[in-house]
């Protein structure tokens, strides 16, 4: 299953809820303001790193770049473009957007 999160973890609980419910082996794609969870140095870093062994975490490159965050992506987070976003949707049997 693919989970899509578009909210900053510092503003909303979308990522928290997603991480609570996402099961091992699922993928989480961070887009829009959701990409702020994918970077080093913030207080959310630990939470994302703790989730990484069980989940595949991706972040949308164009959204990282737009926000000036492309150079501080956490190790273990895969950066994808819109084509990669499409591939993730195609590879997983269903997807849930945590709006």
């Amino acid at each position: 299953m693919l989970h899509i999160v578009n909210k900053s973890p510092y503003e909303r609980n979308a990522l928290d809820s997603c991480l609570r419910i996402a099961t091992n082996g699922s993928a989480v794609l961070l887009i829009e303001d959701g990409v702020y969870a994918a970077v080093k140095g913030g207080s959310f870093e630990g939470k994302v790193q703790a989730a990484l062994p069980g989940l595949k975490i991706y972040a949308l490159g164009p959204d990282l770049s737009a926000r000036g965050m492309a150079d501080r992506v956490l190790d273990g987070v895969n950066v994808v473009d819109y084509g990669g976003f499409v591939d993730l949707v195609a590879e997983h049997s269903n997807c849930q957007s945590w709006l």
Partner: peptide, 18 residues
């Protein structure tokens, strides 16, 4: 609980969220 909810979600064909 969250694990049961996760299992229910995983078996869906279509998830529409608002």
């Amino acid at each position: 609980d969250h694990a049961e909810m996760a299992a229910k979600m995983a078996e869906q064909d279509v998830l529409i969220s608002f």
